[in-house]
Amino acid sequence: MPDSTAVAEAPAVTRPGAAPAARRTRKPGHLPVHLILLIGALLMVLPFVWELVTSLKTYHEAISVPPTLWPHEFAWSNYSKVLGQIPFGSMFLNSVLLTLGRTAGQLVTCSLAGYVFARLRFPGRGILFAAYLSVLMIPGQLLLIPQYDIMQGLHWLNSIQAVVVPGMFSAFGTFLLRQFFLSMPDEIEEAARLDGAGPVRVFWNVMLPLARPGLVALGLITMLWSWNDLLWPLIVNTDTDKMPLSAGLATLQGQYSTDFGVLMAGALMASAPMIIAFVFLQRHFIKGIALSAGKG
């Protein structure tokens, strides 16, 4: 990572005349760069700050003109109103189960399939892989009507499995992990094979540990997309008790369309878990995105 070197390179803050000339020529005027980046960063963060500030204002204070920059008295009740108005607890649990279920499912199915495509030879490999690639190009909404019909046929509407099961498979994840398994040196596999290991042992003992960065990347991206997914849960789980938080927010908005303090409290509570996860696992998140580069 370039960051650590950047810190090492940059001399302690300028004392104009004192810095050695060589050092000074190295960073010719970073000030304008910082200025632009800071303005941009401010624009990125301001909506979050305003969300937080508003979430602590009473109804009347939130709509006072001119707006107060800081709440006069903290209206913590906005947060309890969210809890009271929508079944936040069960929605939160649904979001957690949805996210964990999809992530675990994809890690299993995609790593197996990725390994098979990268490392095993069998008749029909080319055609099967082409099928995966073609799925990569299909936009999600094209599949929604038949997927809904399947859920209805299984009597899964308004259930946790409806939001989990279809998300446990991914052509994208398979492709991503296949790239990882492909890049592993043949020698390691051959050594294990000579010791008499079969494909399953090779997968479990040799390949999977080596593919950890890929698994982490896929896991985090799947987590993020699952937690934030709106359209599919909105369609299959219409009972508020069975909704994840994303769909729950839409419900909250329907009920509290003008009480902005409550709405902001809800928005903050729903998005906080991923933001916190990001702050702690930042490096991994960013690596995951750089590796796979989104699909929103």
Partner: peptide, 11 residues
């Protein structure tokens, strides 16, 4: 700059 990327679009 990355913060909005991880934030729920509904929020």
């Amino acid at each position: 700059y990355f913060l909005p990327v991880v934030t729920m679009p509904a929020a």
